[in-house]
């Protein structure tokens, strides 16, 4: 409830600040904001972020935005990129807190140097006062993402009751992915199911082999939660090859995934995936830039985190979401359908 109130408060602040944007646009100050992301060009979600930055630049021509990212989910490389970006003394940084322990030193240094920081996509999970003193967090609640998707699966009476649920993760250090798994775990264990988290890696062949071994060793597994949408077809392919009936029906394995990406939506439409979520990726690119801008121009500091999701996407609302996402991805929508 507190989170909902916080989100509403943040939205109210956004609405109150909106009339000020005309003033802000007339500013003669030039700014450079950098998004240092873990979402690289091998992840379709990058498109949401880069497109939202382009839109932001159209609205604020006096701001130059840059998108820097790792392509291999390496905290070691991500921290190095972050430090190099700090060295360029940008006017603002947006960064996901992939690992609190690894990111705390460089981010505190940046903040001490007067560079405003907004966390996006993954927050520092510690309570306020202990956490890295960034301006605000803009993104989904990863725990709620897992929990809501789990509860949605349980609410469907036409599906098999969960016996064993595996959460397949590709990034061992990603705090957000761990939180997604934790949310799913709480929902499923409350219904009496066994739950396990499995590291499959981001490399397709390794991921398939790992999943296949797991399913062979644990034949009672009947739900697979892939915490990235692009790994959902791998999970479906492995289960299908093993004859485990992975489509959405009253038998076999059921697959749940995340993100309103073309591959997740196409999976739902084809009956391969039960549900996914939207965590408002477009807003996660745009809103941090806007808050950084308002911090400089008007001194605004959000008083709470800004939640941009989750919303469950299933077969009922798939057509609506497909239209929206096609508008963002254009021709790339069909190219990214790997089913």
């Amino acid at each position: 409830m507190k989170k909902v109130i916080n989100a509403l408060a943040a939205c109210a602040m956004l609405a109150m600040a909106a009339p000020q944007t005309a003033t802000a646009q007339e500013s003669e100050n030039n700014y450079r904001f950098v998004m240092v992301s873990h979402i690289g060009s091998n992840d379709p979600n990058m498109k949401w972020l880069t497109l939202s930055l382009e839109e932001f630049e159209k609205k604020y021509p006096n701001v130059k935005t840059e998108y820097i990212s790792t392509n291999n989910y390496s905290v070691q490389e991500h921290v190095r990129l972050l430090e190099q970006v700090i060295a360029t003394k940008p006017d603002g940084i947006a960064v996901p807190i992939v690992s609190t322990d690894a990111f705390e030193v460089p981010l505190r240094k940046a903040i001490e140097q007067g560079i405003p920081v907004v966390a996006f996509n993954i927050p520092d999970p510690r309570p306020e006062g202990e956490r890295i003193p960034y301006l605000t967090y803009v993104g989904g609640d990863e725990y709620l993402t897992g929990k809501k998707l789990g509860e949605y699966a349980l609410s469907r009476a036409d599906l098999p009751a969960p016996k064993r649920v595996v959460c397949a993760t590709h990034d061992s250090a990603h705090q957000g992915l761990k939180a997604r798994c934790a949310g799913m775990k709480d929902a499923m264990e409350a219904a009496g199911a066994e739950f396990e988290e499995l590291f499959i890696s981001a490399e397709p062949a390794t991921a398939r082999n790992t999943l296949q071994s797991y399913l062979q060793a644990n034949p009672d597994t009947n739900y697979i939660f892939t915490v990235a949408s692009w790994s959902a077809p791998w999970a479906w392919g492995v289960a299908n090859d093993m004859g485990l009936s992975p489509d959405v029906d009253d038998k076999g394995v059921t697959i749940i995934t995340v993100d309103a990406s073309p591959v997740a939506l196409a999976g739902i439409k084809a009956g391969h995936v039960l549900a996914t979520n939207s965590q408002g990726f477009w807003l996660q690119g745009y809103a941090p830039m806007e808050w950084l801008y308002w911090k400089h121009e008007l001194g605004y500091e959000p008083q709470s985190d800004i939640l941009t999701g989750p919303i469950v996407v299933d077969i009922e609302n798939i057509d609506h979401w497909e239209g929206l996402v096609r508008n963002i991805f254009g021709d790339a929508y069909d190219e990214q359908n790997t089913w």
């Binding site: 291999n72 390496s74 905290v75 070691q76 690992s99 322990d101 690894a102 705390e104 030193v105 250090a173």
Partner: peptide, 16 residues
């Protein structure tokens, strides 16, 4: 030295 600096290590450290 890298782990001491980051305060963090995972299975991908040193890849490539």
């Amino acid at each position: 030295l890298e782990a001491s600096k980051l305060g963090f290590a995972d299975g991908s450290m040193g890849r490539l």
